[in-house]
Design a protein around this nucleic acid. Structure first.
Lengths: 207, 207
DNA sequence: GTCTATATGAAGATAGAC
DNA sequence: GTCTATCTTCATATAGAC
């Protein structure tokens, strides 16, 4: 009853396309590489997707969706806001700095002029999702009085925290593709971000 | 006495290569585009550079050098540390978010796996230079007692400020290639970064 | 699944212009 | 003679036919 025939094949094609595009980028990738890696014929390949462009779009969409659901699955342990931010930050940075995460960012950024939808999609399903998540926790902490972010608002504060967590590590991974950061290094980045953020916005409460 | 003949031609070639590579990236760019845009023959083109790769490297090197000297030319007005940071941040963000700056970052990040030297060079001549510049000012301000960064050190503090200034705007420009930020938007980002940084590290001085 | 038509790129060679 | 324009070669790409 299935029309597009053999679902397994189309999964193999999408997996292969993902691997090839994330490794070589759009222009340097060839449909032959994808075909060979998927172990299918050209007919099958072009039966799944009408063009190289369509394959690329499908790859980006799936990666973004996967990233979004991974982010949404983050379950910060209960505790004070510093601990919560640390949990979220650590989980997010692990995703961003993973080989997959770095490669995806590279390709999306490189091809954003040609595939603007890919850029938008990435923004909405990545940074935006985690920022919303942080904003929610900041909102709670603000109500309880643990932090005071009235000066700039919840959204801006969340954005600042996410930026603090991501930036330095991501920049180094993007520009030094040979060196991968250690777990300790990632921890240091997260702690520095949390300390900076909390140091700025903690409430001045007299005991 | 000049061996490579006609300096003007080689400048035209490098200019053309810059325009083509920054617009299309490495793989999608063709030597024919460069040749046509420079108005020279293939022989001239390959007389200047032995290969497409060499042209790319030359383009990146020159852009990085240009960026570095632009950054080094920043002259922050005298005043308190908040004003100084605002001046540096504003000038740096103007460079980073310029069409050239965004395009260069895009290409360097995309090609860093294939041209790791380009990534290293960019890091050293861009973020590193401005961070050193900020560190110097922070050091002075710290000695005078305007700020207290003893908890994390000058380098880390400078890195945090530079990250705060750059991140959000750069992310949006990279992922939304159609929308260019207004001068007011850039000002808002800079002010937010300065306020956050100062709010965190200002000295608690009793009057 | 193999095989091929068409097209385009990189690089070099040949021959013409000043 | 130095520089330029055009043509050729070789490789590889997409797309589709068998």
């Amino acid at each position: 009853m299935i029309k597009t025939a053999s679902n397994e094949k189309s999964v193999a094609v999408l997996d292969a396309a993902t691997s090839v595009f994330l490794t070589h980028g759009f222009s340097a990738a060839t449909t032959d590489m994808i075909q060979r890696e998927a172990g299918v014929s050209k007919k099958t390949l072009y039966g799944c997707y009408p063009s190289k462009e369509a394959m690329f779009v499908a790859v980006i969409e799936r990666q973004c969706a996967s990233m979004a659901s991974t982010i949404r699955a983050i379950q910060p342990a209960a505790g004070d806001i510093a601990k919560t931010l640390g949990d979220i930050g650590r989980a997010y940075l692990d995703i961003v700095l993973s080989e997959r995460g770095v490669a995806l960012f590279r390709v999306v950024v490189a091809e954003a002029p040609r595939f603007p939808d890919a850029g938008r999609r990435f923004y909405l399903t990545g940074p935006k999702v985690v920022t919303a998540m942080v904003a929610e926790r900041l909102s709670e902490a603000s109500l309880v009085g643990d932090i005071d972010i009235r000066a700039i608002g919840v959204e801006a504060a969340a954005s600042i925290f996410v930026s603090l967590v991501r930036t330095e590590g991501q920049l180094e991974c993007l520009l030094h593709p040979d060196a991968r950061p250690s777990a300790e290094q990632i921890d240091r980045w997260v702690r520095l971000a949390v300390d900076t953020f909390i140091g700025r916005f903690e409430s001045a409460k007299a005991p």
